[in-house]
């Protein structure tokens, strides 16, 4: 990660900018949305990626300590995925996030219960917490 950041420093013009935008490894709710409201089925565990998160934070810290970049801004925001069915969500989790999240069986069961109420405009939502850092090249 530090090597990539140093390469970014090399290819940037003076006062060039890097942006680091990524999801944070914090537990997030699996929500069932329906017309006008929402209910949580429980929390999704994103801790399997915590070590990558820490490594990325450390890499950023090292370029700031090394004075090759200076932090311009840092902000956090919600970032959501929506599915129409639990089956589709499970397929995506298996295909794309298998090693990144843990979806407890109890949460799946609760999601099925909430979906089965057959309310209008039902969707499944997983809202991740994102961090966006902006850093300016020094030197």
């Amino acid at each position: 990660m530090v090597h990539a950041l140093k390469e970014a420093h090399r290819v940037l013009v003076p006062q060039g900018i890097i942006v680091d935008v990524r999801p944070l490894s914090v537990d997030v709710p699996l929500e069932i949305l329906y017309k006008g409201d929402r209910e949580s089925a429980g929390m999704i565990d994103t801790s399997p990626d915590i070590e990558l998160d820490i490594a990325a934070d450390n890499a950023i810290e090292s370029i700031l300590i090394g004075r090759i970049f200076v932090e311009s801004s840092k902000e956090y925001f919600d970032f959501a995925y929506y599915w129409k069915t639990i089956h589709e969500m499970e397929e995506d989790l298996e295909e794309f996030w298998k090693d990144d999240v843990i979806l407890p069986e109890a949460v799946i069961q609760q999601a099925h219960k909430l979906i089965n109420k057959q309310r209008q405009q039902t969707q499944i939502r997983v809202g991740l917490q994102m961090k966006l850092g902006k850093y300016e090249k020094l030197g």
Partner: peptide, 18 residues
């Protein structure tokens, strides 16, 4: 290992890639 010359870009984005 970026295959670009030095000082080629104004902005580099790491989108969930750090």
């Amino acid at each position: 290992s970026l295959p670009f010359a030095s000082q080629s870009f104004d902005l580099v984005i790491f989108a969930s890639s750090l």
